[in-house]
């Protein structure tokens, strides 16, 4: 799912209907909205505040802020973008208030730079013929039955791997790959460059792939 700048600037007819329904007091619509976005909002909040309870409070405050701001929704952005912008502002404000907020730059995690694949899986730079080539290459998953890849347990493993990522990697991979946000949307929301976003996404995906490989190779063995 991708959005052009133009698309993400304008609320869809569905967004406008949702806002109208909320303003008319439709509780079911509100419940659907919180169920759809809350988990993702908590993940984004955790990029700014340190603990989950605080992140959950930020998200609660955000939803209340959303309700109060509904009259001001002009449809110049999608409803989702609008909600998450309110969230990001709330999270940053809260982070500034919390004495021990985590600076964005340190959210990558300790020692989280360098190669994303275990160097032991490659031949050394001093190998006479094939320096830097796979020593133990990944095996093709083409033989893996489709239902195994789609199975609930496989998805659980991927979810677990995502949950264990450092906060900013987790947020980026969730927004991009789980929720389907475009690169532009994520960069705009988090106020980071394409390059920064790509690094976070790269590290996140590498860890999740590795976890999935361990799981599937374990089953194949």
């Amino acid at each position: 799912m991708t959005s052009t700048d133009a698309e993400q600037q304008i609320a869809s007819p569905e967004d406008l209907r949702t806002v109208e329904a909320l303003r008319a007091g439709d509780e079911r619509v509100f419940r659907e909205l919180i169920e759809r976005y809350t988990a993702s909002m908590i993940r984004v909040a955790l990029m700014y505040v340190r603990t989950r309870p605080v992140a959950e409070e930020v998200v609660q405050d955000t939803w209340i802020g959303v309700l109060g701001s509904l009259p001001r929704f002009e449809g110049r952005s999608s409803l989702r973008t609008w909600i998450f912008r309110i969230l990001a502002n709330q999270a940053r404000t809260r982070a500034r208030r919390e004495a021990r907020s985590v600076p964005f730059s340190s959210l990558a995690g300790p020692g989280d730079d360098g190669p994303t694949v275990d160097p032991d899986r490659f031949l050394g730079a001093d190998h006479p013929a094939f320096p830097g080539h796979w020593a133990s290459p990944p095996r093709s998953w083409e033989g893996t039955p489709e239902q195994e890849l789609l199975a609930g347990e496989t998805r659980e493993r991927v979810q677990d791997a995502i949950d264990m990522l450092p906060a900013s990697q987790r947020a980026v991979i969730s927004l991009r790959d789980v929720e389907g946000w475009s690169s532009q949307e994520v960069c705009d929301l988090l106020a980071i460059s394409e390059g920064n976003q790509r690094v976070l996404l790269h590290r996140a995906r590498a860890k999740v792939r590795e976890a999935l490989e361990e799981y599937l190779d374990g089953r194949a063995a």
């Binding site: 988990a39 796979w134 990944p138 093709s140 083409e142 789609l150 998805r155 991927v158 490989e213």
Partner: peptide, 26 residues
């Protein structure tokens, strides 16, 4: 390089599975 072709394919499939995760309960 079959190894790297497999790596890219694994990465694509990983992203695909991520896109199918169930929404988390609130």
């Amino acid at each position: 390089c079959d190894g790297c072709a497999a790596y890219l394919d694994q990465m694509r499939r990983t992203i695909d599975v991520a896109g199918r995760l169930d929404p988390e309960a609130v």
